[in-house]
Design a protein around this nucleic acid. Structure first.
Lengths: 191, 191
DNA sequence: GGATATCTACCTACTAGTTGGTAGATATGA
DNA sequence: TCATATCTACCAACTAGTAGGTAGATATCC
């Protein structure tokens, strides 16, 4: 792995476990074994670093969502995988998805990153919307209402569930919070 | 108002709009017109300040929830007031409820405050649980499942909806995210 | 009543450490 | 030789927190 990729990996882990405000170039230098000035060589400012973080993250999540959509036989299956994805992002309960971490610290983020996070949120919500549209066709979600409404609600639910689970340092809290929604996903023969 | 109360008011506003990490004793001194050392006179350390903040906040919210419960003729009315309370906490979209702000910054909080926030979260969830129990009696919530499950889901939903609305600087996003739940609250003759 | 002592609420001036960021030298490999 | 990647050594600005002092209100004792 290149040092740049290595720095991004460590920065992402730090941002997700501590928050963007709560890690420094010194932390990053210590984690990778190079000097602080060398970190600045790869990411001139912290604004550059946060933007690289969110872009890298958004690309990976987009790939994963496309993959989930392609693999799923019904909307319910895709939504179940989506819940699993956000559950797994918690690790042992000490890590948030980067979007939650960034949303919580909007004020200390440069404008470009704020805009990029907003675009990411919109993309994920649009993906959820598409799944609920599918569900309207395949009938794999019980008691379905308006897809856009469902998408907004589910996105807020998983973000909030992550926050609660991480604060309690217990990933089971995520499962508890989404249980009611999970129950609406039908386990039809096709999935 | 005493200077101590004044400091708490400003500190709460700063914590809710910027986050706990993102305001300093210098900011607080500037906001209240006294010197930094005088802020330390009232709150010796930032740990003391955060604990005072959450205790003050928890007491006020508990009072408000008791009031809501007492005033409501049906569970659906209490839950509607609860949604309104969290909606209003957003202001014009630049402020979170203190619980969300503190949950997002668990790592930079002293242990005592983390514990206090956790207790607050449990209290609010218990209150929601009680409302869903009531709903089981008065039938004012449509498609009701297990009260504990509903409480965990609704709490995560409002926290996530706050995060999304604040990141987008638009309180309407909160309303969108909770719309699906709102629709389940019956507008019976008793409320 | 008047002296003494204590308390509240603030002050100026400081410390030790951290932050993001820079200048310029040096090593490494194509 | 030249670009890439690293280094040492710094900087100004900020952080929470401390030391030591003061004006004025309030209590206590003779």
């Amino acid at each position: 792995m290149t040092m740049k990729a290595n720095l991004l990996t460590h920065a992402e882990a730090l941002a997700r476990s501590r928050g963007i405000d709560a890690f420094s170039y010194a932390d990053l230098a210590a984690a990778t074994g190079i000097r602080k000035a060398s970190v600045h060589y790869h990411f001139a400012t912290k604004a550059d670093l946060t933007l690289a973080l969110i872009e890298d993250y958004a690309a990976r999540v987009a790939d994963r969502l496309n993959q989930i959509e392609a693999q799923s036989a019904a909307a319910s299956g895709a939504l179940r995988d989506f819940l699993q994805l956000y559950h797994d992002a918690l690790g042992t309960g000490d890590s948030l998805c980067l979007c939650v971490a960034f949303s919580a610290a909007t004020d200390s983020l440069p404008e470009a990153s704020v805009t990029r996070v907003e675009a990411f949120r919109n993309d994920v919500t649009a993906w959820l919307n598409a799944q609920f549209d599918r569900a309207r066709q395949d009938g794999s979600v019980r008691a379905l209402s308006d897809p856009a409404q469902e998408a907004a609600a589910l996105f807020a639910l998983v973000e909030g569930a992550q926050l609660v689970a991480r604060a309690a340092r217990n990933p089971d809290r995520f499962t508890d919070a989404v249980a009611h929604f999970s129950d609406r996903l039908l386990m039809g023969a096709i999935q």
